[in-house]
């Protein structure tokens, strides 16, 4: 399996784009779990909401013969940045509703409730074909600035776009978490009762954290939609929508945004590169099964890290709050 240098570069670029999108999702999770102690196991729900919202905002409503094949409730044909904004807003609003319903649950039950909500969102999108074309999903989603570079180099440009978003989100979260607001969140994670004894409305702070993190996840979803240019409900199943992101954050270091980024790159590298490496060593006739070795590898790595380095590769950063 020879690969030209260009091929390798292309592969690396699309790897970096996907890993960065996952890093954004992992930072969103870090706001929830790492900083506030909210067990959100429904990342896939916000991921899907972001992706679908941006898709419906930025793509035109199908007309003519296409309308027979692709059904979508709305198609606003608006610019990319409005899609991103819409993704963040819709994810945030839905997170607010979910939070009001579920944030009073004790932490473990919150985890299970959010899994259920995310799955219900996915099943809803899958079944209600009028909304966004059901199981076939939406294809040919617009790619921002696609006319300023040749098609074969587009991914380089998109990597720049995703990197800008990742950087801005990273610094926004770092700043937020060092602010007095972020200090309250971390205090909630450590000892909720102390914070409420301090006269702070714990529920309200948790709700804000849930909304903030969900907006980041929504942006991650939108960036995914415009990268892959095609989305189906199947993408947002718990494995790739939620659990893999938990693995990324846990591996990198809970409560550490750099850890979230590093964990995302490592897990995604294991996932997407192991296929190539494994193909070289497996006996003939075994190729179709070889890719599944990556399940074993990531699973073992996750177990190993949890037992040997429970704080992840980087551990939690010490935070100095600014006043």
């Amino acid at each position: 399996m020879g690969m030209s240098l260009g091929g390798v570069l292309n592969f690396l670029v699309s790897f970096a784009i996907m890993a960065s999108i996952y890093a954004i999702l992992a930072i969103g999770l870090n706001v929830h779990w790492g900083y506030t102690g909210l067990l959100n196991f429904g990342i896939a729900g916000f991921f899907a909401l972001g992706a679908y919202t941006s898709a419906l905002i930025t793509s035109p409503k199908p007309v003519g013969i296409m309308a027979n094949y692709v059904r979508q409730a709305i198609g606003l044909n608006l610019p990319f940045l409005l899609g991103i904004a819409g993704a963040a807003i819709v994810s945030g609003v839905i997170a607010g509703v979910i939070g009001i319903l579920t944030l009073r649950l004790s932490e473990g039950y919150l985890a299970i409730a959010t899994i259920g909500i995310a799955e219900s969102i996915r099943i809803f999108i899958n079944n209600e074909s009028w909304l966004a074309n059901g199981p076939q999903g939406l294809i040919g989603l617009p790619r921002p600035l696609h006319n300023i570079v040749p098609r074969c180099y587009y991914n380089y440009l998109y990597l720049v776009i995703v990197s800008i978003f990742l950087t801005v989100i990273y610094f926004a979260v770092e700043r937020g978490i060092r602010s007095p607001w972020g200090r309250v969140l971390r205090a909630i994670r450590e000892d909720e009762i102390m914070v409420s004894a301090d006269g702070k409305n714990v529920f309200f702070f948790k709700l804000q954290s849930l909304i903030f993190g969900a907006m980041i996840m929504g942006i991650g979803g939108a960036l995914y939609a415009h990268f892959s240019a095609a989305i189906q409900p199947g993408v947002f199943e718990p494995l790739f929508g939620t659990f893999i992101i938990w693995a990324m954050l846990t591996l990198g270091g809970t409560g550490n945004n750099k850890g979230a980024i590093i964990g995302s790159f490592i897990v995604w590298a294991l996932w997407s590169w192991s296929t190539f490496l494994i193909f070289k060593v497996v006996p003939r006739g075994f190729e179709t099964r070889a890719p599944y070795i990556r399940y074993v590898l990531i699973g073992l790595l996750l177990i190993f890290i949890i037992i040997k380095r429970p704080k992840g590769m980087l551990g939690e950063e010490a935070h100095v709050s600014e006043f």
Binding site: W246, A247, R289, G299, L302
Partner: peptide, 18 residues
């Protein structure tokens, strides 16, 4: 331990596929 069990789930499923 919940997250560790996710790891166990992946290892088992990987072996089943393989």
């Amino acid at each position: 331990s919940f997250i560790a069990s996710i790891g166990v789930a992946w290892v088992l499923r990987g072996f089943i596929y393989i």
